[in-house]
């Protein structure tokens, strides 16, 4: 190798070294700054006595960590009380593309306004493009108190 080639290798090596020094901290930083979210655990949403209808929209407040803030956000879920008293809590966004669906009392369907997805009151898909039944929340009952945890995908 002549002098020119050796020098060229040095330049390439140095550039690679500087790049390498940077890569890991930067990746860790970017991953770290996007991993914000809720506390793992259960949040109480309602008492069984508060549920009137067979299907009820329940609003509740949740404390979340949002980047550098800790704040309270308002959320809601659809709660179904089966005739035998069992409770199902649905995540309130359509499994197709995440639009907010609503409960149609007359047809007894959950209906998504975006692309016409329809689900029955147990969350099974009836019509439209959604790929799977409605997502549910992990549930915990303590006496009367209903608490929800992670989202369970069907």
């Amino acid at each position: 190798m002549d002098r020119r080639k050796v020098l060229a290798r040095i330049v390439q090596f140095v550039s690679a070294a500087i790049g390498a020094l940077f890569v890991l901290p930067v990746i860790a930083f970017i991953r770290g700054s996007s991993s914000a979210g809720r506390d793992d655990g259960f949040d109480p949403i309602a008492k069984i006595g508060d549920l009137g209808e067979e299907v009820t929209r329940v609003s509740f407040a949740r404390l979340i960590r949002d980047g550098w803030m800790v704040r309270t956000i308002q959320e809601y879920v659809w709660v179904r009380k089966k005739p035998d008293g069992a409770i199902v809590v649905f995540e309130p966004h359509c499994t197709h593309l995440g639009c907010a669906y609503s409960w149609n009392q007359t047809n007894q369907h959950f209906e998504c306004p975006c692309h016409g997805g329809k689900f029955d009151k147990d969350g099974n898909r009836l019509a439209g493009p959604p790929p799977r039944p409605l997502d549910r929340y992990e549930l915990k009952m303590e006496g009367n108190q209903i608490s929800i945890g992670k989202i369970l995908k069907a």
Binding site: P25, V26, F29, G32, S33, G67, W68, M69
Partner: peptide, 20 residues
């Protein structure tokens, strides 16, 4: 209200934040 807490969060909570 956001500037100081966000810098503090960067310094204390994020991996590599204080170094950057």
């Amino acid at each position: 209200p956001g500037a100081y807490p966000s810098v503090r969060y960067l310094m204390e909570q994020l991996p590599g934040g204080a170094w950057l």
